[in-house]
Amino acid sequence: MLCVAFLLICGCSPVTAAAPVTPPVVHISPALDSKRARPDRGLLVSTSGGTLSNVQAYQGGEPVPGTLDRSRTVWRSDWTLKPAAEYTVTATAAGPRGPATVTMGRFRTRPAERTFGIVSTAPLPGETVGTGMPIIIDFDTPVTDKAAVARALEIKAEQPVEGAWRWTSDTQAVYRTRRFWAPRQRVTVTAHLAGLRLPGGVYGAADSTFVFMVGREQTSMIDTRTHQMIVQRDGEVAQRMAISAGMATTREYTTTSGVHLTMDKGNPVRMVSPGRSKGEPGFYDLMIDHAVRISNTGEYVHAKDNVWAQGRANVSHGCINARPDQAAWFYATSLRGDPVTIIGTDRELEWDNGWGFWQLPWEKWIEDSGPEAADSAEDWVPQR
């Protein structure tokens, strides 16, 4: 009886076969071994049946930056790819159980027949600037997809800042912060242009990076009614200067009111009366010492030996003139991008006169920039 019972029990027991383990599948785009991949589409690695545990991509020995999504199933390169370049990719995907899948290989992007790039920047690489300094980038080709290019321009500051790009022409983009830069910090600007495609098959040829420093905080306030200029450095008065401003007999001889920025300087600078020929009334052709330019309409803060007027009357052709020793001090201590605010005249500085960008309220500055042109340099997140 015992034997029979054992057999019955054995006969009723279920038999379970081990379920097959399917390893995860890794997908890479552009496909490995491609010879003419489109650089503007970037690099995409994804997996089905598992999660990505490691993605490594390199071009010319340099890692390709990328971002893994929250599900850990999709990895995208942060930027477009360089034309005519070879890339290597290694991707590892792990399933819920069983072996992982490792996929590796290489591909090459197509060359660019037509390219665009940067011809100049302000600030210059390595330059130390004032707290009002904009970032100005000039391109060698009219930019037809301004939103795409703005998204590719990355600003990283050591201290938090909010700013936005505004296009002043088809070839120039200007970045202005919402408030002045915090002083004494390093700012890195990277234009991720390599592989960026504009209409007509024009590609960015290469990425470009430069670094500048924001120096001490120096601001100047000029009141043309009291004929006084006060220069503050790091919140303390550094210099009080008696000045003479534009005589205001004509519009061109009227100093502009508003927030100016120091743009460049020369010692001396040749100043010639606009629209007048030699021998005509009002003509002048002078060499002026210690001149700091603050607009594109011929306005400078400069030296002038007419101390009888400084602090008393406005007699200039539109510039701000000061005692020679004080003008020399201002010349020596000025950095490009130092704010110079002028009040007291009936002629407003236009926002596009020189670097009069601070004349636009922030809401107006970003009005034509679009959300894709704005970013925070504290936590910059690329938009795709």
Results as ranks from 00 to 15, higher is better:
279 G>S: 05
265 K>C: 09
276 R>A: 08
307 V>R: 14
260 H>C: 09
286 L>I: 09
261 L>R: 09
264 D>E: 14
250 T>E: 10
282 G>I: 02
236 E>G: 03
254 T>F: 01
300 Y>P: 07
245 A>I: 02
250 T>N: 05
231 V>T: 14
267 N>A: 10
230 I>N: 04
301 V>P: 07
274 P>A: 00
234 D>L: 07
282 G>A: 07
275 G>H: 05
265 K>F: 08
300 Y>E: 11
254 T>C: 04
276 R>T: 06
287 M>Y: 14
309 A>E: 06
269 V>A: 08
296 N>M: 09
289 D>W: 02
307 V>D: 15
259 V>E: 13
276 R>N: 01
263 M>E: 14
297 T>H: 11
249 T>I: 07
290 H>S: 08
296 N>L: 09
287 M>F: 11
238 A>W: 14
287 M>L: 13
226 T>L: 04
284 Y>D: 08
280 E>G: 09
310 Q>L: 06
269 V>P: 02
230 I>M: 10
226 T>W: 04
287 M>H: 08
303 A>V: 01
235 G>N: 06
254 T>R: 04
307 V>T: 14
271 M>Y: 01
225 R>N: 13
251 R>G: 15
225 R>P: 04
229 M>L: 15
240 R>D: 09
300 Y>S: 02
249 T>G: 05
236 E>N: 09
238 A>K: 12
253 Y>V: 00
271 M>G: 02
257 S>Y: 07
280 E>C: 09
278 K>G: 04
265 K>I: 08
302 H>L: 03
253 Y>G: 01
228 Q>E: 13
267 N>R: 05
252 E>C: 01
291 A>Q: 02
302 H>C: 06
250 T>G: 01
300 Y>F: 15
245 A>C: 13
302 H>V: 05
282 G>P: 09
255 T>R: 10
245 A>D: 07
241 M>Y: 00
290 H>R: 05
293 R>H: 12
286 L>C: 00
291 A>D: 07
249 T>E: 12
239 Q>R: 14
243 I>Q: 03
311 G>A: 08
307 V>C: 10
310 Q>R: 03
290 H>Q: 07
294 I>R: 04
239 Q>E: 15
306 N>C: 00
304 K>R: 11
264 D>L: 07
294 I>T: 10
246 G>Y: 11
304 K>Q: 11
268 P>S: 04
296 N>T: 08
285 D>N: 14
284 Y>W: 12
305 D>A: 14
262 T>K: 02
306 N>K: 01
248 A>S: 14
241 M>E: 15
225 R>M: 07
254 T>A: 02
305 D>C: 00
240 R>Q: 11
250 T>H: 02
246 G>D: 13
241 M>N: 10
278 K>M: 11
237 V>T: 15
256 T>W: 02
246 G>K: 07
224 T>M: 00
271 M>C: 03
254 T>N: 04
299 E>D: 00
288 I>T: 12
239 Q>M: 15
295 S>R: 04
265 K>S: 13
259 V>R: 14
246 G>A: 08
235 G>I: 04
283 F>K: 00
267 N>Y: 05
299 E>K: 06
240 R>S: 10
243 I>L: 02
299 E>S: 01
